[in-house]
Amino acid sequence: MSSPGPALARGDTTPAERGPEAVRVTLSVNGTEHEIHIEPRVSLLDALRERLDLTGAKKGCDQGTCGACTVWVDGRRALACLTLAVTCEGHEITTVEGLSADAEPHPLQRAFMEQDAFQCGYCTPGQIMSAAALLDEGHARDDAEIKEWMSGNICRCAAYPNIRAAIRAVRDQT
């Protein structure tokens, strides 16, 4: 089984074609390097959930229509279901498990609990990763803006007003 390392890390100038069998892929997730053996067709979402046991990012649709799999790639929110894991080599992945450095919840996690911004909780990690990015982007100036810029995360329990309240609470305390 061939398992060349990341193309860009190689010394020669000809990038190597990898796969279709499983290859060694190095993913940096929440500040930790993981080496996994996966086929190039494996999505970042399935790599996280089925190979790294990081199940915080959820599979809601697997087609980019719900936002439950929202993670950060180099600090920007993205959908793990439409990202191939192998393309993430050399990039930093952050999932909800890595949102707060220590045992203390992130202010948004605390606000989500206080505002009851979820029910079943399945969309919640994606909502929180999206909301934290939203605050960094500066797209939480008013409710209309929060509504629009949080619309990529479906909550079927429809906790939307409480999600907005949680985002406002964190926005206003910082």
Binding site: T55, K58, P105, F112, E114, F118, G121, P125
Partner: peptide, 21 residues
């Protein structure tokens, strides 16, 4: 009261049915 399982849900620690290793 806040949900007792709130922290499990907001932290991604809550394990749903296909997430039990």
């Amino acid at each position: 009261l806040d949900r007792v399982d709130g922290h499990a849900k907001v932290s991604g620690r809550a394990r749903y049915s296909t997430e039990i290793p």
